[in-house]
């Protein structure tokens, strides 16, 4: 099968996005998905996939990061949303079918989905 995607295409994409990197890193949104054994077994990979698909379909430029186990295994899949100047919010038992509402309410409307929250961390808590 001939390859459609090539490194030349990637280089063109690089040139398109290079200018806005610093702005995005400083002011953007990062969604963090726990990817320890407990998270993977609970479906964290599928949750991460659903998050990436939702961001792509809504054309939301947010970073997605994976981290190891943080010890709250019974609440996996765990998803943190971190936005500049706002408390970091940890959501528990986030399954793929919950992702559209999470993105709509938290990222689009700016409202925390309280019934799914398992923790909040202010910038003071994390020493910023």
């Amino acid at each position: 099968m001939p390859k459609v995607k090539s490194l030349d295409e990637l280089r063109k994409l690089r040139d398109q996005v290079k200018d806005d990197i610093s702005t995005r890193i400083e002011t953007g949104t990062t969604i963090i998905v726990g990817m320890g054994t407990c998270g993977i077994a609970a479906g964290a990979r599928e949750t991460m996939h659903a998050i990436m698909q939702e961001l792509e379909s809504r054309q939301i430029n947010a970073h997605v990061r994976t981290v190891g186990c943080i010890g709250m295994c019974s609440r996996e899949p765990l998803v943190d949303i971190e936005q500049a100047g706002k408390p970091r919010v940890t959501y528990g038992n986030v399954y793929p079918d919950m992702v559209p509402r999470l993105i709509e309410e938290h990222l689009k409307n700016g409202h925390v989905v309280d019934e799914w929250v398992v923790g909040r961390k202010t910038t003071d808590d994390i020493g910023l």
Binding site: L10, R11, R14, H63
Partner: peptide, 28 residues
Amino acid sequence: AELREALDGVPLSHPQVRPWVQAYIREG
């Protein structure tokens, strides 16, 4: 390492690069 070299400092996790990388792997 090849992808990072082509990206010249743009992270693989960049929101606009991420879908490209996933599609590249799927295609392969």
